[in-house]
């Protein structure tokens, strides 16, 4: 199927060092994410909590031919998806926060909606800012967080992507998320 081969081939081209390929994937990814999200809205899944990471995973399955794509392709795809998902969620959270500040009590902020599940959500705008700050000093750690948090990537895929060992990624992750937590709590 066209979509399959398209993204699968684009990923192959990325692996071969073709920089324009990753940019070409983004619109396809948006379209697919949109379609999946719209489907969730229509179907019985409405109101249920859906992890953006699950959405990314679903998009991967839809867009990339599992049989033809190599393990690396998955990593490349997820890294792009993580970037896109970060943009989506952060800009959305930012808009909501802004709407809340300026436009009265029309909307409930993200973290209040999640009380029931026992999972607490963190302030994505603050996290984004903190991530930028972290990236200034240690871009790799910020990438680890981005790929883990926004795309739910497995540690070994992150390691593969960033060209470092698995243990380095694990160390980065523990340190970075702790550092970010403090940054959000103190300064956010």
């Amino acid at each position: 199927m066209e979509e399959h081969t398209d993204v699968t081939q684009l990923l192959d081209r990325m692996r071969d060092g073709d920089a324009s390929a990753s940019e070409a994937i983004i619109p396809l990814l948006y379209t697919e994410l949109r379609a999946i999200a719209a489907h969730c809205l229509k179907s019985e899944r409405r109101g249920h909590t859906l992890q953006p990471t699950a959405l990314v995973h679903e998009a991967f399955l839809k867009l990339v031919d599992q049989k033809k794509a190599g393990f690396r392709s998955r990593g490349h795809f997820m890294a792009i998806a993580a970037m896109v998902m970060r943009r989506i969620l952060v800009s959305h959270a930012g808009k909501r926060a802004a709407a809340k500040r300026g436009g009265g009590a029309a909307r409930v902020p993200l973290d209040d909606e999640l009380g029931a599940g026992g999972e607490r959500n963190i302030d994505l705008v603050a996290l984004d800012e903190a991530l930028n700050k972290l990236a200034e000093r240690d871009a790799r750690k910020a990438k680890v967080v981005e790929q883990r948090f926004f795309a739910g990537m497995e540690m070994n895929h992150i390691a593969e992507n960033l060209g470092v060992s698995l243990s380095t990624v694990k160390r980065d992750w523990e340190y970075a998320r702790t550092w970010l937590m403090r940054e959000i709590e103190c300064c956010g």
């Binding site: 948006y30 994410l33 949109r34 999200a37 719209a38 969730c40 809205l41 899944r45 409405r46 109101g47 249920h48 909590t49 859906l50 992890q51 953006p52 990471t53 959405l55 998902m85 943009r87 989506i88 969620l89 800009s91 959305h92 808009k95 993200l110 909606e113 999640l114 599940g117 999972e119 959500n121 963190i122 994505l124 996290l127 967080v145 883990r148 948090f149 926004f150 739910g152 998320r177 970010l180 937590m181």
Partner: peptide, 18 residues
């Protein structure tokens, strides 16, 4: 901080807006 979690309709809306 593990993976991001938001309600599905919020995601649909977020993707739309983005």
């Amino acid at each position: 901080i593990e993976t991001a979690v938001v309600p599905s309709d919020a995601i649909a809306e977020a993707v739309d807006k983005a």
